[in-house]
């Protein structure tokens, strides 16, 4: 059923390898600015949940990166689809839609994993090393799985690059700022917290931060991410099927 996924994944990895140093630089710029501006300058002397603001910020940035970089696979798909027309080569090949989704989602997750490691290295350069235990990585991978699958599904529904940019502006950017990345969600009014509970990133930030601080994360965070992942994968497979028309 998923024979052929490796070709999809292999292609994305070849492209990633070709642009590796450019991507590493690009992945470093925003987090570095956040760390300098918010963590080092503005957050100096600030204590949040018993930790320095820099310590609080790094797990949030990791959660945000796992979302933005896995979601960025959608842009790669659209370049392949609208600009290079490579998607037609995949549609004409004897592979299932599930195999296609599987390959692209794994590529998105790999991309997120590499970008996440860049944040941890930057954090270490700022003198912050937290506990990067299996629960930390589990939350990271689940979050990137959710957003990579969402990206693949949405990439099939949109009609142009402009739509892709709009999707990022309306879905990803608000979530990046409100999903517990830069401040504790508890600082917001209760009604806002209730709304933010529905965002996957809120749960990913919670789980990643708790595990990085060596505290047992809430199982509910993992269950919600693990529940969303198959839903978005099914959405992605249906969207790929629809894209043929």
């Amino acid at each position: 059923m998923i024979r052929g996924w490796s070709a999809i994944y292999f292609r994305e990895m070849l492209i990633l390898r070709r642009r590796f140093f450019k991507l590493i630089s690009a992945w470093s710029v925003s987090p570095l600015l956040y760390l300098i501006a918010f963590g080092y300058a503005m957050g100096k002397g600030v204590v949040v949940q018993g930790h320095t603001y820099l310590e609080f910020l790094i797990p949030g940035l990791v959660a945000m990166t796992s979302m933005t970089q896995s979601f960025a696979i959608g842009s790669e798909i659209n370049i392949a689809r609208f600009y290079w027309h490579i998607f037609e080569e995949f549609q004409a090949a004897p592979i299932s839609n599930t195999a296609y989704v599987f390959g692209e989602v794994l590529a998105g997750m790999t991309r997120a994993l590499l970008a996440g490691c860049v944040i941890l290295v930057l954090g270490a350069l700022f003198g912050v090393v937290l506990s990067y235990n299996p629960l930390f990585w589990l939350a990271f991978l689940l979050n990137s799985l959710v957003f990579a699958a969402l990206a693949v599904g949405l990439a099939m529904l949109i009609k142009s690059h402009a739509d892709q940019a709009m999707m990022t502006s309306f879905v990803i950017t608000p979530m990046a700022f409100l999903g517990g990345t830069f401040f504790p969600v508890e600082h917001l009014p209760e009604w806002a917290q209730k709304i933010l509970w529905f965002l996957p990133l809120t749960h990913a930030s919670d789980a990643i931060r708790a595990s990085a601080f060596g505290v047992m994360p809430e199982a509910g965070n993992y269950l919600i991410l693990a529940g969303l992942a198959p839903l978005f994968i099914v959405f992605a497979v249906i969207s790929v099927n629809k894209a043929r028309n």
Binding site: A7, F10, R11, L14, I15, R18, R19, A80, W84, H85, I86, E88, E89, A93
Partner: peptide, 15 residues
């Protein structure tokens, strides 16, 4: 509909 940023051989291997 070839991958312009990949080599001739890489395009064929993916296929």
């Amino acid at each position: 509909n070839l991958d312009a940023d990949l080599s001739v051989q890489e395009n064929l291997v993916i296929h």
